[in-house]
Design a protein around this nucleic acid. Structure first.
Lengths: 202, 202
DNA sequence: GTCTATATCCAGATAGAC
DNA sequence: GTCTATCTGGATATAGAC
């Protein structure tokens, strides 16, 4: 497809993409350090030893930067989803999913905020990026369906439970594991509820 | 206590407090309309037909305004907590608490954001306001303890579940009741888990 | 592709006259 | 208690030289 292009074009393109990635890396570092709303093109340029205006060669707007972060976050999450091991024990699968999700949130709170809360004023993902977010939900939905949970209410309950653990972990114990430790118990609670009790407590 | 004060001082003080309240009302309206981070002193002054600088007669800083909103939100929540009816049925009490909490969130998302998420950069509540927030948690904790749930892990699981329903409601269906409808089922799930199953499903 | 220069607008906050 | 005037600094974005 690009074979007709002169070689120096390819090189320039590669350089362009490399710089773009450097900018995105610096952007991740910035939101990691100061929260999602701490992203500023001025500061970003300063970190990269360039003038703020030069960033516009790579991204047409600040929202475009957010959009790339949003897309990358969703791709990472999709990737982790595909590494879930299949198992005959539904509880084992649920446990993996919950762990993966809460870890994803705890690893990088800003990323979780970007993907699942609406905390950046006026930011709307582009259609392409949004499609990735839809994919994530589809993956989760079919993972539960594979366990026999194809009811919408069950799915919503599951996401609420897992999102609750994640958001409480971020809000109340960002550097600890207070809510992460509850995951297995939460899975038991949910599984008992939707599949029927196995081992009643007390 | 103030009986030695001249009457016009009282009147001036009352006028001062009234204006302060007008400012806070306008601030609520602003965050309600545009989100928590949409609060701006300039815009606030404009809405009240005054110059931005005049606001400093009433509040020493923007964070001080946030602090008053934070305190008022917690007072409102405490107030609702005290209206929970006692009952012999723990599930009934849990249901009331969950409803009250998720409704509190759904009624004014910005208020929920201010109280329970950390979305205003650099904002820390004052000690007096923070004490109110601590009161809220205490109230919730003792409400559960009164039902026999005095385990920290049970409390954390409960708050995660309720916070999850609230945050999903705000994020995915802000004007509907998709997650509010799950509350009773969530209470059943939780109660079955901590008290032992009553009526197993399937 | 990067720069200088600039446009435009916004923010929170302070000093001091009235 | 409210105003005018001002400070200081931030932001995103565009035009055009090199």
């Amino acid at each position: 497809m690009h074979s007709a292009e002169p070689r120096h074009r390819d090189r320039r393109r590669a350089r362009h993409e490399a710089t773009k990635q450097e900018i995105l890396d610096a952007a991740w570092a910035m939101v990691r350090a100061g929260g999602l709303n701490a992203l500023s093109l001025r500061a970003l340029a300063h970190d990269l030893d360039m003038e703020p205006q030069s960033l516009y060669t790579y991204f047409p707007s600040k929202h475009a930067v957010y959009d790339h972060l949003f897309a990358a976050g969703n791709r990472e999450l999709l990737d982790r989803f595909q590494r879930v091991e299949t198992s005959d024990d539904p509880r084992h699968v649920l446990g993996q999913i919950a762990h993966l999700f809460v870890s994803f949130a705890a690893d990088e709170p800003a990323r979780y905020e970007l993907l699942f809360m609406r905390t950046v004023p006026d930011f709307e993902p582009s259609p392409e990026s949004y499609a990735l977010a839809v994919d994530v939900v589809s993956q989760a939905r079919s993972a539960l369906a594979a366990l026999g949970l194809d009811d919408d209410a069950d799915f919503d309950m599951w996401t609420a439970l897992v999102a609750g653990l994640a958001s409480q972990q971020l809000a109340n114990d960002p550097h600890g594991d207070r809510y992460i430790r509850l995951i297995d118990d939460a899975v038991t609670m949910f599984a008992d509820h939707v599949f029927g009790t196995r081992v009643p407590r007390s």
